[in-house]
Nucleic acid binder design. Structure first.
Length: 410
DNA sequence: GTGCGAATAT
DNA sequence: AATATTCGCA
């Protein structure tokens, strides 16, 4: 029994228990023999790197772990290098930490140290190193580069107020949770499409993103968001400790663009059908002058339609229909059924408005499932009568229907 | 905090 | 031009 090697025994012996870095370093410092020191350091580093590999898949969830591990690795490697340089040869003036080990596991032990010098001399040679570095950095930057974050949040905060607007940073700040460092537009767009559907609350989105996004939505407007996109690659090369290194103007612009696109809501396309519902609602409510966005939206029963959208549309509607105060203003009555005529928009505009849901009479229509943002998401419900309409019809044009004052406006 | 309307931005 | 966002107010 006593002869059982530690590896085989089940109990956790001290040697098996992970040491803290400081403890470990202390121990190592007691070792007089340099090679031993180094090998011990290297061994530990190896373990750390293995660990890192293991959590690599979760780096997004565990950014800090990655960071800590990496820090530890870097520190230990530095220590190792120092040991060597102190006692052995002057060779290594600079040790480039990084995970080359990942790829050249063994070669590192044998050759890395030797080659370091070279690498240092010609930074261009260490493709592998750099590549790794970049990869790693890019993942890390997602969450924590303080610099990036602060600068971004700064932008967000200072947002509007023309003062800053000169930068053109729209940062509507709409939540953009964890955008993959290279967020691509496709992604952003999709996110927004989805964002639209949730009126009823549940729409599953990528958790992280969705949450923030919704939050910002529900509060009526922009919200700060943890934005973590950043230049990534370029800086990665030099150090982990976030190097300030300013972005080029071009890069900044790109970033801003990305932010914008990410943040800005997708345009709602007011298809004829949609508009028809809108007008219907208006009529039921007694006219555009008295109807309020919320009421309208409720009457419209359109999935995903927001108050803001209705409000905006109403504003436009009023613009086009205003003037006419005269006699018309007796709510309620004229209401229904005026659609074709007085309506500031002629019926044909809506396409054959009789299709499917057209209830000019003010009778409630089934919920319209509209995913009709300009992007043209297909409606989940599948049914959506007017979907086809939507599909082919673009937003109607206001101007083509010169408003006829009078009753249309009710 | 919400809803609204006007103003402004995109 | 059409829609989105912001802003100030009730």
């Amino acid at each position: 029994m006593g002869s059982v090697p530690p590896e085989l025994s089940l109990d956790f012996r001290p040697t098996f228990v992970p040491k803290t870095i400081s403890t470990f370093l202390k121990e190592v410092s007691l070792i007089g023999n340099v090679p031993d020191k180094v090998s011990k350091l290297d061994a530990f580093v190896k373990r750390l790197e293995e660990e890192m590999r293991k959590i690599d898949a979760f780096k997004r969830e565990l950014p800090l772990c990655m960071l800590l591990l990496n820090d530890a690795i870097v520190a230990l490697k530095e220590e190792s290098v120092q040991c060597m340089s102190r006692n052995v040869e002057p060779v290594l003036e600079e040790f480039i930490p990084l995970k080359n080990k990942k790829e050249n596991n063994q070669s590192e032990e044998d050759g890395a140290l030797i080659t370091n010098k070279k690498e240092k001399d010609s930074n261009n040679n260490n493709c592998n190193n750099n590549k790794d570095k970049k990869n790693w950095m890019s993942s890390v930057q997602l969450w924590n580069t303080d610099d990036d974050y602060s600068s971004i949040s700064h932008k967000l905060d200072s947002k509007r107020k023309d003062g800053d607007s000169s930068q053109g940073c729209k940062n509507r700040g709409t939540a953009t949770a964890f955008m993959p460092f290279k967020m691509n537009l496709g992604f952003a767009v999709r996110k927004e499409e989805k964002e639209e559907i949730p009126v009823h609350g549940l729409t599953l989105l990528t958790p992280g993103i969705k949450n923030l996004k919704e939050e910002s939505c529900s509060t009526g407007s922009r919200t700060s968001c943890s934005r973590a996109v950043s230049s990534s690659a370029p800086n990665a090369q030099s150090t982990f400790r976030s190097v300030p290194q300013p972005l080029s103007h071009h890069q900044q612009q790109q970033q801003q663009q990305q932010q914008q696109q990410t943040a800005r809501k997708q345009r709602r396309c007011w298809s004829p059908e949609l508009h028809r519902r809108f007008v219907n609602a208006l009529q039921q409510l007694g006219g555009s002058q008295v109807a309020t966005p919320k009421q309208i939206r409720e009457l419209m029963q359109v999935d995903g339609l927001t108050n803001d959208e209705v409000k905006s549309h109403l504003q436009k509607y009023r613009l086009h229909t205003r003037r006419l105060p005269a006699s018309t203003t007796s709510p309620a009555n004229q209401s229904v059924v005026v659609l074709g005529s007085g309506l500031w928009m002629s019926q044909d505009q809506y396409g054959e408005s009789s299709k499917g849901s057209s209830s000019q009479s003010g009778s409630p229509q089934g919920p319209l499932q509209l995913a009709t943002n300009t992007g043209g998401t297909s409606n989940p419900g599948g049914d959506s009568m007017e979907d086809d309409e939507d599909a082919k019809s673009e937003s109607y044009s206001w101007k083509s229907h010169i408003h006829k004052p009078g009753k249309d406006d009710v």
